[in-house]
Amino acid sequence: MRFFFSGKKKEFRGHLLYSGDDFNKAQITFLKKEQDSYELKNIEQYSDEDIGIFFFKSLSDTESIMRYGKENNISSFLLDDIVNINQRPKAQFGEGHLFLSLRRLIVSNDSVTFSPISIYYDTKRITFFVNNENDDLITNFINRINNNRSPFRTSDIIYSIPLILDIITSEYLNALDVISIESQDAEIKVLDQEDDVDPKDIFFLKKKIYDMRKIIRPSKEALYSIIRSDEKMIGKSEKNYFYEIYENITQTLEHLEVYADNIRSIYELQLTINGNRLNEIMKTISVIGTIFIPLTFIAGIYGMNFEFMPELGFKYGYPVAVVVMIVIALFLLAWFKKRKWI
């Protein structure tokens, strides 16, 4: 919670600061836990006795988030983490609750964007705070949890957390596929020495991988802290699902490390190729300059305006000088070629 001083009443008032630029009115979706399914209900139909899942869409509506947090006894410090779109992924246990903050990787038109998601669990309800209203996260979640073959359909609501984490992990894999395609395209272009290869593109791809690692690695650490915790609100059977997600994220991170090394090698290779091209250009210029040095020397000597120069009166002086220059140039070209300099 960040505080600002109010000059009129001379008191401190707590306000949440949303770190993004956009603003969208909050929308709350409620899934009520029935005996063998989750039913989508209107928020006005919710009562304190109901057990279910809330989707709180839009982090920019801080007033609604503060009101929701007050009604559900969510700490102001956690609310501050929720509205911070740059919050580092973490897991935190409190008195009767679990707070988990993660970052999603959303693939759209072959581009990867980051979006925060926070999870608050207090045994009776789970709240997912998401910032992107237009993606299909909620639809995928409802379809998967109500699938007849889903073991989560009749399980405790705690199992919905591994389910949403599995969807997030799938988004990581989709982003990894984009990185794989871009990495392969860059590698092919560099190896084929195409002229349209821009080192900036490779650098930005390298930066994208770095940003993804910066998100996925702390997510792995957050899940590990849940698995290793002694909190009784998450039992051994639930931890098995968390461990599967942990393994998937570990494999994703390992693949990302491989792509990072590959992009680093491609970037260095591109710099080497550009350096070799520059060396070839400089070598060509040097060869041309070396050939013209003796020719310029001869032309310079006979271009001097001295009155007494024996060769100036020679009848065949001009053609002889030209022939000598041609012979010298051909000799130098043959010598350079023999030394494999050209």
Rank of each mutant, 00 (worst) to 15 (best):
F5D: 15
G7F: 13
K9F: 09
K9A: 07
R13C: 05
H15G: 13
L16V: 01
S19W: 05
K25C: 07
K25Q: 12
A26H: 06
A26R: 03
Q27I: 13
Q27P: 09
K33F: 13
E34I: 12
E34Y: 10
Y38L: 15
Y46D: 12
E49N: 11
G52A: 05
I53C: 10
D61H: 06
T62L: 08
S64I: 05
M66K: 05
R67D: 15
E71I: 06
S75E: 15
S76G: 15
L78M: 14
L79H: 02
I82K: 03
P89A: 09
P89K: 13
A91M: 01
Q92L: 14
G96I: 03
S101K: 15
R103K: 15
R104I: 03
L105E: 11
S108Y: 08
V112I: 06
T113F: 07
S115L: 05
T123G: 12
R125L: 06
I126W: 12
T127A: 00
F129M: 04
E133G: 13
D136L: 06
D136F: 09
L137W: 01
T139S: 13
T139M: 12
N140A: 10
I142S: 10
I145V: 10
I145P: 07
N147G: 15
N148A: 15
R149T: 12
P151R: 06
P151S: 12
F152P: 14
T154E: 14
D156P: 13
D156M: 05
I157M: 07
I167S: 09
I167G: 11
I167R: 11
I168H: 08
S170Q: 07
S170L: 10
E171G: 08
Y172G: 08
L173A: 04
D177S: 06
I179W: 01
I179P: 05
S180Y: 07
E182A: 03
S183A: 09
E187T: 03
I188H: 01
L191I: 04
Q193E: 13
V197C: 00
P199Y: 02
F203W: 04
F203C: 03
F204V: 06
F204S: 09
K207A: 04
I209F: 02
Y210F: 04
K214A: 04
I215P: 09
P218Q: 10
P218C: 05
A222V: 05
S225M: 09
I227F: 03
M233R: 10
N240T: 06
E244M: 05
E254N: 09
L256D: 01
E257H: 03
R264N: 14
Y267C: 02
Y267G: 02
Q270L: 03
Q270W: 01
T272Y: 03
T272V: 04
G275I: 05
R277C: 05
L278K: 11
I281P: 08
M282T: 07
T284G: 15
V287A: 12
I288W: 13
G289W: 14
G289M: 13
T290C: 05
I291N: 04
T296F: 06
A299H: 03
G300V: 11
Y302I: 07
N305H: 01
F306D: 10
M309V: 12
E311I: 00
E311G: 01
E311P: 01
Y318Q: 11
P319C: 10
V320E: 01
V320S: 02
V323Q: 00
V324Y: 08
I326Q: 01
A329T: 00
L330C: 02
L330F: 00
F331V: 00
L333G: 00
A334E: 02
A334W: 02
F336R: 04
